[in-house]
Design a protein around this nucleic acid. Structure first.
Length: 336
DNA sequence: ATGCATGAGCG
DNA sequence: GCTCATGCATA
């Protein structure tokens, strides 16, 4: 029911209808047998990273075994998994915090001598968690207001949360930014959403109907991530007032039993299907190993890695970007 | 629920 | 080139 372009523009994301990049490179070779063999043949990047790469992999192996069986010195082991999954299902067990889960850069100790190149940046790694983004580009659906660290949530030049029921939350950065509060809200939100019998996708779509300035539809993914707190802190803060507005509106309508009968469900016919690249486990493991040593490889390095793993350079680059993003991902539970 | 991707905005 | 918000496709 939503044409791709419609939805995106509504959400603030621009997807020029006719500008899809021709590089949808269907690199989905997950099933490709070659994938399992990180081609050890004559590498072009010879002198460059052969040694490094191998060591990185070896180190990763050590690292892995380390947190799997080995006792961790100190805090509850931060898993350097590329993903965090602590999500109970709907109606699952009482929500509760997981472990303090910051980025895991264990395994680094002792690696720094590996390669001067890689170690240089490694050594600077700090216990970052969500520290202080240098600056931010405020784009998207007018979430600019909240995104700004020092601005108050009411920003956006509209600030009509008067009727939203929780003026305090909307007006006080302290309240709005409090991870505890966000966590609690996400929890409530999910619970009540389910109560209303609405799916995450429904919510995303419905947001556009709120007609809040600058607020368009969102995807199921985003709603899901909001509920599971897997968005950045700023993103959570930006979305909260919007979802809160929707929730209140939805409950009001439900109470009055009056849902406007407008159901323009005109499913847009199929569009081009993007093929999702799937990186095979062995390759993924290698990437994780490299990432542990150098989360921000240079273009050259990325090229070398891509070649060694027989992956597209862009795929590798994006993988690193996503990995960093995940690493930075806020873990409310973790920080409390 | 999550992996890989796009694209805006910023150096 | 990166970060960040966000989405499509898929497990």
């Amino acid at each position: 029911m939503y044409s791709p372009d419609k939805m995106k523009s509504g959400g603030g994301l621009m997807a020029p209808p006719g500008c899809f990049p021709g590089r949808y490179s269907p690199t989905y070779r997950s099933t490709d047998p070659r994938r399992c063999v990180p081609n050890p043949s004559g590498d072009l990047f010879t002198g460059l990273n052969d040694g490094l790469l191998s060591r990185a992999e070896a180190l990763a192996a050590v690292d892995i075994s380390k947190h799997q069986s080995g006792p961790q010195p100190g805090p509850p082991l931060p898993q350097l998994k590329h993903d965090m999954v602590y999500h109970p299902g709907v109606g699952g067990p009482p929500p509760h915090n997981a472990r303090p889960h910051q980025m895991g850069h264990h395994g680094m100790e002792g690696l720094d001598m590996l390669d001067p190149l890689t170690s240089s940046s490694m050594t600077t790694l700090a216990p970052m968690g969500e520290a202080a983004p240098p600056h931010h580009q405020l784009h998207g659906y007018g979430m600019n207001h909240v995104m700004n660290h020092h601005h108050h949530a009411g920003g956006l030049g509209h600030a009509p949360p008067a009727h939203l029921g929780h003026p305090a939350a909307a007006l006080h950065p302290d309240t709005d930014t409090d991870p505890r509060e966000l966590e609690a809200f996400a929890e409530r939100f999910k619970q009540r959403r389910i109560k209303l019998g609405v799916t995450q996708a429904d919510v995303g779509k419905a947001l556009a109907n709120l007609k809040l300035p600058g607020v368009g539809a969102l995807s199921q993914s985003t709603i899901c991530r909001f509920e599971s707190l897997t968005l950045s802190h700023n993103n959570m803060i930006a979305l909260k007032p919007i979802l809160q507005a929707w929730l209140e509106e939805a409950e009001a309508q439900a109470k009055n039993k009056r849902r406007d009968p407008d159901a323009p469900s005109v499913l847009p016919a199929g569009e081009k299907k993007r093929k999702r690249t799937s990186i095979a486990a062995p390759e993924k493991r290698s990437l994780e190993a490299y990432f542990a040593v150098q989360p921000r490889p240079s273009g050259e390095k990325i090229t070398a890695i891509a070649e060694k793993l027989d992956l597209k350079k862009n795929v590798v680059r994006v993988w690193f970007c996503n990995q960093r993003q995940k690493q930075k991902r806020m873990k409310f539970a973790a920080q409390h």
